[in-house]
């Protein structure tokens, strides 16, 4: 049933995009409630299924609850007064509910490395948005070339790019750091561009790989039709490939966004002093220096989580779509 949903692409090309469309449709049906296709299962088999999976759904909800409890505990704790956090578990909140915003106020007033916490929040945004956008676009250009342009050694170069996924980012830290601190790099005073560049580098192999899977599986006839219509590669890329790749760009972009936002290592190594550091840095610093002030840590942790949670909850239906293209047999 899931495969009856059509993406814009396979709707026009019929059978060709069907296989991939099926998978995407499946994701849509799974994660995105409102877009559910009409259920065409004969009624009899559906009833049978429901009966047999009753136990299954209990297990699923149990696991879901188990998965949520720790986060929920943090949320509750972050609103409890300091004295209570330090003397009783968060689950006692329900027998003795008292709510305060002091913890959040405390976090916002708190200074790490001489900077208010809000500065780190801004840093996180400054680091993350370009750190997610730049590599995705660079990778999209490259993925287009690997899919639709002809050049010498194309397939081998692509294999080489994919092979670079293997390189652990740790392997490049020291040399890159030396490079960023050398005179070649124009902006060594400000560490944030260095962080962007580092994130772009580390994201590149996977992003090219995933985007090539997606862009390469666009129906070739559409690209050819555009060429016959007189479009150059740049026009095809901008007018046709980019608009059609929005699901893939979005999903990979979201993953990259989460990864950069949640990153500690890259920022710590390349960012220089505290003034260029994201919130993860401030959190670790607080864990280290204020290990006993749990009321601050709870609120702080929640503040760092807010943006990714919003991004995640509002865009989760995009998540897997672009990642799956080409990797799923169907």
């Amino acid at each position: 049933m899931a495969s009856t949903i059509s993406t814009p692409v396979d709707a026009t090309v019929g059978a060709k995009g069907g296989a991939q469309g099926g998978v995407q449709g499946g994701v849509l049906a799974g994660v995105n409630g409102p877009n559910k296709p009409p259920d065409l299962t004969p009624r009899g088999s559906k009833i049978a299924k429901n009966l047999s999976s009753k136990k299954g759904s209990i297990i699923v909800w149990l696991i879901a609850a188990l998965w949520t409890v720790p986060t929920f505990g943090l949320l509750v704790s972050s609103f409890r007064p300091e004295t209570q956090i330090k003397t009783s578990g968060w689950w006692f909140f329900f027998s003795d509910p008292s709510v305060t915003l002091d913890n959040y106020r405390g976090v916002l007033d708190n200074k790490v490395g001489g900077q208010p916490f809000t500065e780190f929040f801004l840093n996180s945004i400054k680091i993350t948005v370009p750190g997610a956008v730049i590599p995705i676009f660079l990778a999209a250009f490259a993925a287009y070339a690997f899919s639709w342009m002809k050049f010498w050694g194309r397939d081998w170069i692509f294999v080489g790019v994919v092979a670079l996924m293997v390189v652990p980012l740790q392997m490049t830290l020291i040399p890159l750091l030396r490079f960023f601190n050398s005179d070649f790099f124009p902006d060594k005073a400000n560490g944030i561009p260095a962080i962007w560049l580092a994130h772009s580098i580390f994201a590149m192999p996977l992003a090219i790989f995933l985007l090539k899977n997606f862009i390469g599986s666009l129906p070739s006839e559409v690209i050819e039709a555009a060429r016959v219509d007189g479009a150059s590669h740049m026009v095809i890329f901008m007018r046709i490939v980019l608009p059609l790749s929005v699901p893939a760009l979005a999903s990979i972009g979201i993953f990259q966004f989460l990864w950069v936002w949640n990153d500690l290592l890259v920022a710590k190594v390349f960012g220089g002093g505290a003034k260029n550091q994201p919130m993860t840095f401030a959190m670790v610093d607080m864990v280290g220096s204020k290990g006993n002030e749990w009321q601050l840590l709870t609120a702080g942790a929640f503040v760092t989580m807010i943006v990714p949670l919003i991004v995640f909850l509002s865009l989760q239906r995009f998540f897997v779509r672009g990642l799956l293209a080409g990797s799923v047999k169907g």
Partner: peptide, 20 residues
């Protein structure tokens, strides 16, 4: 010559309409 220079038009089996 590339396709764009030949002044031809083509109808494809899948129609190849631009979905966007």
């Amino acid at each position: 010559m590339g396709p764009q220079q030949r002044d031809i038009a083509m109808v494809f089996q899948s129609y190849a309409l631009y979905p966007n």
